[in-house]
């Protein structure tokens, strides 16, 4: 089964922390700081993106562990996972 795109996964993570505002929060920063179509987000974009999301999110919560966890989760996207038994035929 095909894995979700990096962008879709990033939105899911953002919504975990920010609720429904997560997608807009992420989308605006991808658009502004990376200048790409959000759906074309790639792993190599994540370090630059997270530098901005980290500071922005730090103004939404004063729980730095929460900020750190959000940033780490975003950065871990795109890391290859072991192939599951459900293979593409």
């Amino acid at each position: 089964m095909a894995q979700d795109s990096i962008y879709t996964q990033a939105v899911e993570i953002s919504e975990e922390y920010l609720g429904p505002a997560g997608e807009r929060f992420l989308r605006r920063q991808i658009d502004t700081h990376l200048g790409i179509v959000p759906e074309s987000l790639k792993k190599n974009h994540l370090p630059k993106l997270t530098k901005w999301t980290e500071l922005a999110f730090a103004l939404l919560t004063n729980d730095y562990h929460e900020v750190s966890s959000y940033t780490s989760n975003l950065l871990s996207l795109g890391v290859s996972k072991p192939v599951s038994d459900e293979k593409t035929r």
């Binding site: 929060f25 605006r28 922005a56 103004l59 939404l60 004063n62």
Partner: peptide
């Protein structure tokens, strides 16, 4: 900052953190 400096709009409503200029600056760069 968002707790220390309390901001309201013209109507006297608290401005949500998401809409404050200090956050907007990181969204727009």
């Amino acid at each position: 900052y968002p707790e220390a400096i309390v901001a309201e709009d013209e109507s006297g409503n608290l401005i949500p953190n998401m809409e404050r200029p200090n956050l907007e600056v990181f969204l727009t760069g």
